[in-house]
């Protein structure tokens, strides 16, 4: 590596960094720093001036319960999505593991939702999940009775339904990553397990699951991060309702921004930033490790 210590510097000049850093500073770091400033002001569309108000925004958001609710909803949503997306992804990967023509076609089909707009997916499921919608129609046909469940109108369960919709959109991606993970497990290991008389479930639980660990970590991390930043699917299905039961931080930010309450929106944006930062440290450590492998 250090056979030519001289000359290495001008071989890789630092000015190559500058354009990327300039874009990052202007469009990423400066707005982030602004977040820490304007969250403490009364910036809104109703006033021409901007003045400092200290922690007023935090206090009013906290006392009204909005802050705690949005944080709770966002975390619950992220955990639910991480669970469902990975359960669906692993199940599909196991189902479609063999390289038959049918399986290959099914894999391609399950990737279609991944490339669709999340907003479009949300509208599709809004229609599907109406009380008089197609899902109840199917359930009614199967059970032989009239079914009119308001899937998107329940203050407790709707967040679960919306998290499942989110997972439906992304499960094809998780599936692909698990399929790639399953391919890396050598046939010898599985054969050895089978010769020892391990059942399908024992093979899965004790041999394949541990060897899938890298894929699981990657999928869980991306699902958590993606859903904490979620907006489109929730906006298109419930718009945060009913009664704030699915109001993610980003939904709140969008709504208050639209009302001209810019400082409040900034405060929530800062809360999201802090929440992700705190939760992200394990994720970053994991990414670093991965990069060493690369």
């Amino acid at each position: 590596m250090s056979s030519r210590p001289r000359g290495r510097r001008q071989d890789h000049p630092l000015w190559f960094l500058l354009p990327a850093l300039a874009v990052l500073v202007i469009f990423f770091f400066v707005p982030t720093i602004f977040n820490f400033v304007y969250a403490f002001t009364d910036w809104s569309s109703f006033k021409s001036g901007i003045g400092f108000v200290g922690f007023d925004n935090f206090v009013s958001l906290f006392t009204s319960g909005t802050l705690v609710n949005a944080l709770r909803v966002t975390l619950v949503y992220a955990v639910l999505v991480a669970v469902f997306q990975n359960v669906f992804g692993i199940a599909l990967a196991l189902l479609l593991e063999k390289d038959t023509r049918l399986n290959r076609a099914a894999r391609v089909a399950f990737f279609v939702p991944v490339i669709m707009s999340a907003l479009a997916v949300g509208y599709i499921f809004q229609a599907l999940l109406k009380p008089e919608g197609a899902l109840n129609e199917i359930l009614g046909f199967v059970t032989g009775t009239e079914v009119s469940i308001a899937w998107l109108g329940d203050t407790t369960w709707t967040i679960v339904v919306v998290a499942i919709v989110h997972s439906w959109k992304w499960m094809g991606l998780s599936m692909l990553i698990y399929l790639a993970g399953l391919k890396t497990i050598s046939a010898d290991v599985l054969e050895a397990g089978r010769l020892d008389g391990a059942s399908w479930w024992q093979t899965f639980r004790h041999i394949r699951m541990p060897l899938l660990a890298p894929a699981i970590t990657f999928n869980v991390a991306t699902a958590l991060l993606g859903s904490m930043n979620g907006f489109d699917i929730v906006q298109a299905t419930t718009e945060g309702g009913p009664g704030g039961a699915t109001e993610l931080l980003n939904i709140f930010i969008f709504r208050t921004f639209g009302q001209g309450l810019f400082a409040q929106a900034t405060t929530m944006s800062l809360v999201l930033f802090l929440m992700v930062t705190i939760l992200a440290f394990p994720v970053i450590r994991f990414l670093r490790k991965r990069e060493d492998v690369l």
Binding site: I26, F28, Y38, N250, I253, F257, S269
Partner: peptide
């Protein structure tokens, strides 16, 4: 340090409200 900062955007959410403010100023 520059590398760590440069890849932090993979994880950190963009400050979507103040971006609008900055763009107005620019």
């Amino acid at each position: 340090v520059i590398y760590a900062l440069a890849i932090s955007g993979i994880v950190l959410p963009p400050a979507v409200v103040t971006i609008v403010l900055l763009l107005r100023q620019l």
